[in-house]
Design a protein around this nucleic acid. Structure first.
Lengths: 128, 128
DNA sequence: CATAAGGGTTCCAGTAATGGGAAGGTCAAG
DNA sequence: CTTGACCTTCCCATTACTGGAACCCTTATG
């Protein structure tokens, strides 16, 4: 299977698939003409990566998950640890963004937003 | 005022201040020995930048806000538009992260996380 | 047979916003 | 005079790709 076919099956851009090969996440075969040649297992692996990335796991997380996925004897606790750490990161990000949102929506609400130059948003950025 | 003093007053690392000069956000004077020389207005501007960045505005947003801040006659509506757009972005990010969190916390809860190899997290990543 | 379209390949550069570190100039104190 | 704390510029690394140039392969059509 050529790269474009794999791209449409996994939803990953061809560029991204080449990049994943470059960093050692997949290792497709090569046809005589130099084209990458993917089989079912490569596609499966790439689809796994697409889903994990979609859940926000970093590339290095994915590398770890992939290794665990391929290890028939891994402990589910190992996987869970990665997922839990990632969950904690997500929660931190959410908290930070919610704080920003609160401040910003206050500011937007306070600003009359017309043609007059008086603006509480700038005032706030000015003085802290 | 030398750069380290400015760094400690604004909370911005010296590296970042140099970078802000490089991209044209501030233009400190230069002393005879080549050292950057900041005055009150530079510090004020950098403090403004630090606050805006702290609220998650991008550098380009900051450039726009700074221009409006320095324009005595700007319309507050212009500022408000930038802030509202940024607020919308933040809200999108929060929504995306909350979705991830929901999925992930379901998965973490479903995984017994012990020494056995059976793992719902990987299973889910495997099959979508 | 020439050619054009639509694959594929590699490599180089750029993104956002810094951070790290090297190599070297300057300044104040002991 | 030397030490140590500053300052300078310059270049590389980061994350996870994305875009583009230059070039090869395959197939269909005039």
């Amino acid at each position: 299977m050529n790269i474009k076919e794999v791209a449409s099956r996994t939803g990953l851009p061809a560029k991204t698939i080449r990049y994943y090969e470059e960093i050692g996440l997949v290792t497709p075969d090569r046809a005589a003409n130099g084209y990458r040649s993917f089989d079912r297992t490569h596609v499966h692996k790439l689809a796994f990566l697409a889903r994990a990335r979609g859940l926000g796991f970093s590339i290095e997380d994915c590398r770890g998950l992939l290794a665990l996925w391929e290890d028939r004897d891994r402990a589910s606790g190992d996987v869970r640890a990665i997922a839990k750490a990632h969950l904690a990161e997500i929660e931190e990000k959410i908290a930070g963004l919610q704080e920003m949102r609160a401040t910003l929506s206050d500011l937007v609400a306070a600003c009359h937003g017309d043609d007059r130059p008086d603006c509480p948003i700038l005032k706030r950025l000015e003085t802290g």
